[in-house]
Simulated scan of single mutants.
Amino acid sequence: MSAVNCVALCWRIERRDGVAIGLTTHDRDLEVDGLIHRAAPGMTPSAIERSGGLDADTMDVRGGLSSAAIDEADLLAGRWDGARVTLFAADWDTGVVIAGLGEGRIGAVEVGEAGFTAELAGASGDLARPVVEDTSAECRAELGDRRCRVALGTRRRFARVLGVEGQEVTLDTAEPVAGAYAGGTLRWFGGANAGLTQAVDGSAGMRVMLRAPPAFAVVAGALVELVEGCDKSFATCHARFGNAANFRGEPHLPGIDLLTRYPGG
Rank of each mutant, 00 (worst) to 15 (best):
A73I: 14
G104L: 01
A151L: 12
R16L: 11
M43L: 15
G22P: 01
A192L: 15
T154M: 07
I98F: 05
A47Y: 14
I36R: 15
R156T: 12
D17Y: 04
G122P: 00
D257I: 00
W188F: 15
G100R: 13
P130A: 13
A239G: 06
F158Y: 13
G104K: 00
L226Q: 10
A114E: 14
R187C: 06
L143S: 02
A244V: 01
A118N: 00
V132M: 13
E103Y: 02
C148Y: 01
A20E: 12
A69D: 14
G191R: 06
E165G: 06
D126A: 12
H252L: 13
E228Y: 04
A192F: 07
R129D: 10
T185R: 15
R105I: 09
V161D: 00
V7R: 14
E119A: 10
F216P: 07
F234A: 09
R140D: 05
G249E: 00
C230D: 08
V177S: 09
V208C: 03
M209P: 00
S46R: 02
A220R: 12
T44C: 08
E72R: 13
W188D: 06
R207K: 12
R155P: 04
I48E: 08
L186T: 04
A137I: 09
A220P: 13
R16T: 09
R155Q: 09
L9N: 07
D33K: 06
T236D: 10
F241C: 01
T44M: 14
R261N: 03
A128D: 06
G100T: 08
V61C: 04
G18C: 04
D27L: 13
I48T: 04
E31I: 15
W80L: 03
R105F: 06
G112R: 04
G64H: 04
N246M: 10
E14N: 01
G202I: 01
